[in-house]
Amino acid sequence: MKKLFSKSFWIRNETLVAIVIIAFIIIASISDPRFLSMPTLTDLLRGGIVLGIFAVGVMVVLISGGIDVSFTAVAVFAMYTTTLFLVTFVPELSWYWAFGISMLIGAALGAINGIFIAWFGLPTLIVTLGTLSIYRGFLLTFVGSKLISNLPPDMRDFSRLMMFRNTNADGSFYSLPWAFAALVIVVIITWFILYRTTLGRSIFAIGGSIESARRIGINVRATQFFVYVYVGTLAGLAGIIYASMSRVANPFDLVGLELSVIAAVVLGGARLIGGYGTLTGTLLGVALIVIVRNSLIVIGIPSTWQSVAIGVLILVGTGLPAWQAKRAAARAS
């Protein structure tokens, strides 16, 4: 029986995803020696910022035993409303105000999800499916549906703030924006909450067994409420960073991304039934999705096959553990 553990290491999602990433890098470096370089790395990191922040939020929800498909709508709502507000009334405000407002709006929208889920006891998928429509519909109907391309100057400048910039020997230019620090901070804070606070352990606990959590006196409602507010806040942050980096606020953006983000998180080993998920796995999952999106062509697969590749990864990544679990269940009596 004990041997199962060492075996399980090899079928753990983190390991699998890491192996696929390494294999990808090896094949890519063989077919194009320039692949293994700083520009590739910074592109990967840059591409992972928004996706990564979303994914961390989704991971927390999955750990708590729920699911959230509304976070993209929260993000675009918070981002667009904030930008519109700034552009219309106080364009000279600093970027951190923009961030703060956007996160606050995100938190408020997350709180609405939280109320339906924690107090009305509605299934999480259905609530967030509904609020996805509501938030987006409200945004486009009552806030605005036009692209804002003249972002407040400080928001625009934020995306130009670089942690470092450099030029390669072959003359190619690379840099990493400070926005990346946001992802790092989010990861650190989330790690702290999940592993160093009773609240975080309660999130794992309700994901493991909501009934047991009630019985030992965990405040299930408050915990669930926090989870959805937290995801909302992260979505607000991701949204404003997205706008700042793409230099426009487009109310039609982001929505539609939710399933890819969930896919990344699940690839990283979080389970839909709740209780399981790691930051390492989630970030690896995000990395894999970003690599496939950016660099499929390097290993000789045309970019039109991108979504086939991601789909196959999801099927294999979730299929192997599922198949293993099914066989283990058949073996046991």
Binding site: T304, W305, G311, V312, L313
Partner: peptide, 27 residues
């Protein structure tokens, strides 16, 4: 098959296969 025989949760199985089908149409 992937749901019944391989035991994937339907939500993930069809999320993945949906991407594959769409992807094939794109390709």
């Amino acid at each position: 098959i992937i749901i019944a025989i391989f035991g994937l949760p339907p939500i993930l199985a069809t999320l993945g296969s949906g991407l594959v089908f769409t992807g094939l149409a794109v390709a």
